[in-house]
């Protein structure tokens, strides 16, 4: 194995170890009482219909509560498109 690959492997193993270390204190998989399920999200589940008229919580959050994120999600696509166009375009003036 080349030294560079070995270095990569070591990095990967260290990173993985860190991630697993963190997993130790995580709530059990599928637990309904995790902080993630009791802190912010219940509001979305309970109020999205009243607030936004959308039965799909995901669309409600996507389009409304966190609509600002979605705006920039579009921007990301726009950026990627512009970047690809700029890179791949032939250098001639139409």
């Amino acid at each position: 194995m080349k030294p560079l690959k070995l270095l990569g492997l070591i990095t990967v193993i260290i990173t993985g170890f860190f991630l697993l270390y963190g997993v130790n204190d995580m709530p059990r998989w599928g637990d309904t009482n995790t902080p993630a399920s009791v802190h912010v999200s219940p509001y979305y589940i309970q109020h999205s219909q009243a607030d936004t008229d959308a039965p799909n919580f995901v669309s409600a959050v996507l389009a409304d509560y966190r609509g600002f994120d979605t705006l920039f999600e579009t921007t990301v696509i726009f950026c990627a498109g512009i970047a690809c166009m700029m890179l791949l375009r032939k250098e001639e003036d139409a």
Binding site: G22, M26, T34, A36, S37, H39, V40, S41
Partner: peptide
Amino acid sequence: YLYIATGSL
């Protein structure tokens, strides 16, 4: 990881 422990962003 933060979200899983706190539920907030």
